[in-house]
Design a protein around this nucleic acid. Structure first.
Lengths: 226, 226
DNA sequence: TATCAGTCAATACACTGTATCACGCCCAAC
DNA sequence: GTTGGGCGTGATACAGTGTATTGACTGATA
């Protein structure tokens, strides 16, 4: 058949250049905007103009993609400071900031073993800056701070979401859950809780986070210096 | 048509009596045995010999079922003791034990606002046993312990799963990840980490959990007594 | 030029949470 | 006693998920 009557080959699009980095960036953006549930392999692939199965050349499973996402944001967690106390505070602060920028981090943090390069680099930065302090104290101290930050960040983001879900500000939140709590407190089954809610301090997120961390650092300090 | 020729009504099974409690118990058992991913409304319903849609008479959404599960295990978290320190230790210990019995708790803890009766009762038990200590310190102290326990439990369960996934015991784990870590440490990019892994203390899960908690409690004690 | 390896898209499958719908029962009103 | 209507129940339906498989097409090699 002559060239002239033979149709041109279908204009197959040049395959989009792909990489783990591009995939993870797309996934992170999806998660930042619409939450972790919005991260499906199909949506990530669509964001990259690519068939879903294409991703499996770069990752073996969706869990691996999540691991890569977590490791990627760990690039933003680079504690610095003079002295172990400043360093640990910085670790806590940068982790918290990362969770503020990427709320989905609260869903994943502490939930998978993290051995990626950025996560290791964070750990390296911490340990390197801790000075020559006694390893027998330093290791559990870092572990404790990490545990505290994990839990604190989770609670904080959870609370923030609850507020947002009920309509944006704290007043609305109280208007939604207030009546329920009022009724349950009225049963008299939780007298101590009721007093705390009525008379106790109402700390904001910042205060709660930092005073809790200071408790922990004070306790560590007592062991390190002794 | 005469009765005799009319067929008997189909032997429709007497509808299984249902309740939130039965539903939640079934869901918890599924999660205990096969993990949280095994909890689907269809499987829960099947375990109760019931159509999936039937559950929606008792819960509005799957998230609510998860909330009920979490609140139910909080029934096992009833801290006791003399003095605030014992109480907070007991809070940490019972929470940790609950997570050991129900590993899926590590996936959910801290991830949703908890206002169920059992959770409130746990909080009540803590506050009631804290004595008359200054609320301005007690409230953040309880919050800090909760945050620490959340993070610590998550890490511990995560580690346990990783070990189990690679074949049951610690030696196997090292055999699996060891080579990778060896190679990455050999690059020289993480000298401080490498020294810690080589020369640092190798604490078991119990030690890590308790020494971290003691840091925190020491720090709290300094504020409470002053 | 013919074969082969390898890459990529499409299809397929089992499964999810939940909306909708239609049937059959019980109860209330006539 | 009959009839109608709500309602709880089960079946069906739908859109979406992660991933296995297949089948077409490419460029490289013999």
């Amino acid at each position: 058949m002559l060239v002239w009557e033979r149709p041109e080959p279908p204009d197959r699009p040049v395959p989009a250049p792909l990489s783990r980095e591009r995939i993870v960036r797309a996934a992170i953006q999806l998660a930042d905007v619409d939450g972790l549930d919005a991260v499906s392999l199909r949506k990530v692939a669509a964001a990259l103009d690519v068939g879903p199965m294409r991703l499996y050349g770069y990752i073996a499973t969706k869990e691996e993609l999540l691991d890569l996402m977590v490791d990627t944001v760990h690039a933003e967690i680079r504690p610095t400071g003079n002295g172990w106390r400043e360093v640990l505070r910085s670790l806590a602060e940068t982790t918290r900031q990362a969770a503020h920028q990427h709320e989905w981090l609260a869903d994943l943090i502490g939930g998978r073993p993290q051995l990626g390069p950025n996560t290791l680099a964070s750990g390296e930065a911490v340990l390197a800056a801790m000075g020559g302090a006694d390893l027998d104290t330093v290791v559990p101290a870092v572990a404790a701070v990490n545990a505290y930050v994990t839990g604190a960040v989770r609670r904080e983001i959870t609370e923030r979401r609850a507020e947002r879900a009920t309509g944006m500000d704290k007043k609305q939140w109280q208007a939604t859950f207030g009546p329920y709590l009022q009724r349950t407190f009225a049963t008299g089954r939780f007298p101590a809780l009721a007093t705390v809610v009525r008379d106790g301090p109402h700390l904001d997120a910042d205060q709660t986070f930092w005073t809790g961390l200071d408790f922990l650092l004070d306790g560590i300090e007592a062991r390190i210096s002794s």
